[in-house]
Nucleic acid binder design. Sequence first.
RNA 1: GUGACUGUAGCUCAACGGCAGAGCGUCGCCCUGUGGAGGCGAAUGUUGCGGGUUCAAAUCCCGUCAGUCACCCCA
Length: 436
Amino acid sequence: MSTKIQKLAGFRDYFAEDVKIREYVINVFKKVFEKYGYEPLETPALEPSSIFVGELGDEAEKLFYRFKDQGGRDVMLKYDVMTSMCRAVAENINKITFPYKRYQIQSVWRSEKPQRGRFREFTQCDADTIGSPDVNCDAEFIQMGIEALKNLGFQDFRANINNRKLMNGIIQFAGASIKEFIPICISIDKLPKIGKEKVKKELIEKRGIKAEIAEKILEIFSLSGNTDELLFKFKKQLKNIPIAIEGLNELETIFNYFAAVGLETKYFQFTPYIARGLAYYTGPVWEFEIIEGDIGSVAGCGRYDDIIGKFIGKSVPATGGSFGIERLVEVIKQRKMIQTSSNIVKILVSIFNIDFFNNSLKIADQLRKNNISTILYPVINDKLNKQLKYADRKGIPYVVIIGPEEVAKNVVKLKNMKTGEQKTLSIEETIETVKT
RNA sequence: GUGACUGUAGCUCAACGGCAGAGCGUCGCCCUGUGGAGGCGAAUGUUGCGGGUUCAAAUCCCGUCAGUCACCCCA
């Protein structure tokens, strides 16, 4: 490579095929979101830093693209679609009819160290219900997410569901302080990945939790069973902790919703250790996990009843979540789940030579006037074999050949590139053939 | 943000102190109005970039940029 200009780490160029896959995935989400009654919203890329600072946790703040603009304002690139939406809702609180259901598919920026499936600019595919405290809205989102992933062709995925209130209760039960809540959540979240012993070690050594408290927490997490059994066991164990019982009851409401709509149990699971990192969640939290492969979580979701309230001093409960388009595309490409043809072009009109350019031009123009995506071969003096080769390489299904013989008879030759078959047709017949 | 590994032709890789190579692809011709198969031929490049050591650097050293992996965290 002799190029001296290189794109920034963690940013990407999208050529035709990648654009097509992304559009496809985004359209699947849009359709499902709209089916469930969500309406679109878009917000700016650049926001005042104040809407993010202090909301997302210390770890998140290290990843902010934050700077002073020309006017000395403290601004940052949108870190998260949902927080930006909360700002917009707070600002327009008197114009919006609540409960407000909206979806938003936009880029966000995080200054992380890039890796596969992890970029500094990525697209969040987000839907939320604002203005309802009812956890049936949470359940509806999960149902909708499952539907979207199924529509994309996934089978081996699962919504892992928990409740921050339960986590909170467990921490109370174990005797830890509320300040230790988020650090404990983050460590517990790793249980399936690194195991009980390492989590214990991390709690004690890294998070500074007393050994007996760490042990008590982990003891509760050693409860096992299916969703119903676990709910029962947790309720029994934590019966004297009101916040835990509240959380468990909410989960029960969610699972009852699933039963009512006949959701297959393989697509969801009560997963008590799931925490999600972001600090703002207040109730049910869940992620969508692709089980095979190592891409992990493709969506982070949950209830956040306090954020909008912080902007306007009036409580507005909300729930929803974000799917990561890039991670889904990564798996879809790797598994070849869709065959993308980046070629939208239906037909190439070849050019015999400069004397017949106008004949070719007129054909191309006719085709375009009939809404057929057409390439008029872009170079005048190339040989026919080169023009055909071009069509072949680009995967263009038809080629029009028009030279002296055809012009004399006022016809064209239409070649089907797949079969090699060639027909002499009028322009009208050509349009008919290509259209179908 | 921390640590490890990697970076050579469009792609996959070789050369590991001594003239920078192969396969695939690309281009041309065989084929003056017909692509895919085949035959023949050609071009590939400041070895990511910048510096240093050396008679000599793709190769060793330092820096930098980018990618992958593990942390951190997360979509």
